[in-house]
Write a protein that binds this DNA or RNA. Structure first.
Length: 563
RNA sequence: CGGGGCGUAGCGCAGUCUGGUAGCGCACCUGCCUUGGGAGCAGGGGGCCGGAGGUUCGAAUCCUCUCGCCCCGACCA
């Protein structure tokens, strides 16, 4: 493709709205433009990248015998009403009415429609296993779109759905997908982890997320470098460091107006690990007192797993239920349910004395208070792996894919059933598996760039070779350029030719920004010796080769080795 | 939805406090010149100062309302 005829609007300056590196570089290098919050235009270069990623996905999905199909993005409400999600989901679903005033919605995901289809077309155990996938636009009215194309309101997703006779068969389909995902992300040149994850409102039992480490990520995972334990911090099980506590007798102490752990810690001159944070929350059933160590943070999702949805108690509820105002709550002597983090299971602590302006020290677990013990704190860097005691690492990550064992959550309400070999009617057992191609692209940039621009992995680069004729007025330069361009085209090597009438500096800068893996520099001086220069964008290595060998070397030494 | 910030030419910004003819750099157009790391010279085009009301002789500037965008948090099936 000729640069002069392609829309590649590069920018010298960083647009002020962009924060994430991938966002900045995609704007600067002329890959994307923003239409409105969370809505992006994919310009020609970006679209080529997305298609390369999608094709890798297609190859690996087809390899596990999943079949591509296409689904409506506009859905009738009834299907969503049957599974209950029409009501369970709030403002995040785009809703509208058609001309007959029928309730409709825009697709956020396709569990319902896939199960609807399965309900009609799968009748017998002989029809399974099946895996169907789509690479299509989905829409969510996100509360807060952010970081360029990382979190948008309209996005392309590869979603696949498996249909099996029972849970055992589902586990097989799940494993196949997990394996395919490993191949896909590896081929896309990403560093990634497969981690245990929360099933959330998707339902089902088992799920994993594929996470690409990056500072721009919205999620955090805990990784054990020794045994390989890897989990989203939302459910990571870790053992905190237990300090040596100095023994103290139980005693109330005056702490006028000191309420937060921080304040009391400074006032009494004890580190935060000596404190118990007592938090009153109200679940759907009852009030619950949650206890975490002073230096820890309560993890709301972990607690939700134990007590269901909850909210923090209001001021007057605290006084009514515990008989003391917030800031002086201690774990002692309450009749309500108490859930405590295991970090508090030994030691001697300080906490509120359940009396205004007083704290108590010398509080011992199982002596001064009793509780149900569950891990409810946010995992921190350097805590110990619950499997092997090795210090874990907490990293920021971008979620690039997820896989769920859904079970019968969607098939039962939609009456997707089949007859087994004994003629018994059984619900189809379902799995769902997503990949966000745009996030793969963004993660690739986050993980592969330098101060000059993007450095694409060969597999997903918009072009493989970037021809840079430095002086288009020079006859010999352009002759060689055309000759090489034809050779590359004939060999199906994607090539961009910078045929613009620009000075060399401009072309070099743009080439580095755009990030095509191999730059072929055609300069008049080298050409006099019949040489062109191959510059490796990643290593910055420059190799002089003869014009006649160029194709062969690019093909054999560069592209083939990357396969 | 809560908190904070910002809307002035395609992009990056100044001007707003203290009202008085809308500016700078880059980009763009024409010509000359130049061709190994974002060249130079000369000439030129482009803005309802996000929008609506108001105050004033006069509003980018002051007041009210509104819309949009970014960041933090909540949310994220």
């Amino acid at each position: 493709m000729y640069y002069s005829k392609t829309l590649i609007p590069t920018l010298k300056e960083v647009p002020s709205d962009a924060e994430a590196i991938s966002h900045q570089l995609m704007l600067r290098a002329g890959y994307i433009r923003q239409l409105a919050t969370g809505l992006y235009i994919y310009l020609p270069l970006a679209w080529r990248v997305i298609n390369k990623i999608n094709n890798i996905i297609r190859q690996e999905m087809n390899a596990i015998e999943a079949q591509e199909l296409s689904m409506p993005v506009l859905h009738p409400a009834e299907v969503w009403q049957k599974t209950g999600r029409w009501h369970a989901i709030g403002d995040e679903m785009f809703r509208l009415k058609d001309r007959t005033k029928r309730d409709m919605c825009l697709a956020m995901t396709h569990e319902e429609i896939m199960a609807w289809l399965a309900a009609r077309e799968i009748r017998s155990y002989r029809d399974m296993p099946q895996s169907w996938y789509q690479i299509q636009t989905k829409l969510r009215d996100e509360a807060r779109p952010k970081s360029g194309i990382l979190r948008t309101r309209e996005f392309i997703m590869k979603d696949s759905y498996s249909f099996d006779v029972d849970n055992e068969a589902l586990v097989l389909s799940y494993a196949k997908h997990a394996e395919a995902y490993h191949k896909i992300f590896k081929r896309c040149g990403l560093t990634f982890y497969q981690v245990e994850s929360d099933t959330g409102m998707m339902g089902g039992s088992v799920s994993h997320e594929f996470m690409a480490p990056s500072p721009a990520g919205e999620d955090e995972v805990a990784i054990c470098p020794n045994c390989g334990y890897a989990a989203n911090v939302e459910l990571a099980k870790t053992l905190p460091e237990i300090p040596q506590y100095e023994d103290m007798d139980f005693k109330e102490i005056s702490t006028p107006n000191k309420k937060t752990v921080d304040e009391v810690s400074k006032f009494l001159n004890f580190p935060p690990e000596y404190f118990i944070k007592s938090l009153l929350v109200i679940s759907n059933e009852e009030p619950v007192l949650a206890l975490v160590r002073g230096d820890h943070t309560l993890h709301e999702k972990k607690l939700t797993h134990l007590i269901g949805n909850f909210r923090p108690a209001k001021m007057e509820e605290i006084t009514n239920i515990l008989g003391v105002e917030a800031g002086f709550i201690g774990p002692m002597g309450h009749k309500i349910k108490i859930i405590a983090d295991p970090a508090l299971s030994t030691g001697v602590y300080i906490s509120g004395a359940n009396k205004k302006d007083y704290h108590a020290k010398g509080i011992k677990p199982n002596v001064h208070f009793h509780a149900l013990w569950h891990d409810i704190h946010v995992a921190k860097d350097n805590e110990k792996c619950h499997n092997c005691q090795t210090p874990i690492r907490v990293e920021k990550v971008i979620e690039i894919g997820n896989i769920f064992q859904l079970g019968t959550k969607y098939t039962e309400p939609l009456k997707a059933v089949y007859l087994n070999s004994k003629g018994e009617e059984k619900p189809i057992v379902m799995g769902s598996y997503g990949i966000g191609p745009a996030r793969v692209a963004a993660a690739a940039i986050e993980q592969n760039h330098d101060e000059h621009g993007i450095i694409w992995p060969v597999s997903i680069a918009p072009f493989t070779v970037h021809l840079l004729p430095l002086n288009i007025a020079d006859k010999q330069t352009m002759e060689v350029c055309e000759q090489l361009y034809k050779q590359f085209n004939d060999n199906s090597i994607d090539t961009l030719v910078d045929d613009r009438n620009e000075r060399p500096g401009v072309k070099f800068k743009d080439a580095d920004l755009i990030g095509i893996p191999y730059q072929l520099v055609l300069g008049a001086k080298s050409l006099k010796e019949n040489h062109v220069e191959i510059k490796n964008r990643k290593t910055k290595e420059i190799t002089k080769v003869s014009v006649d060998d160029t194709l062969k070397i690019i093909k054999n030494d560069y592209i083939e080795k990357k396969r």
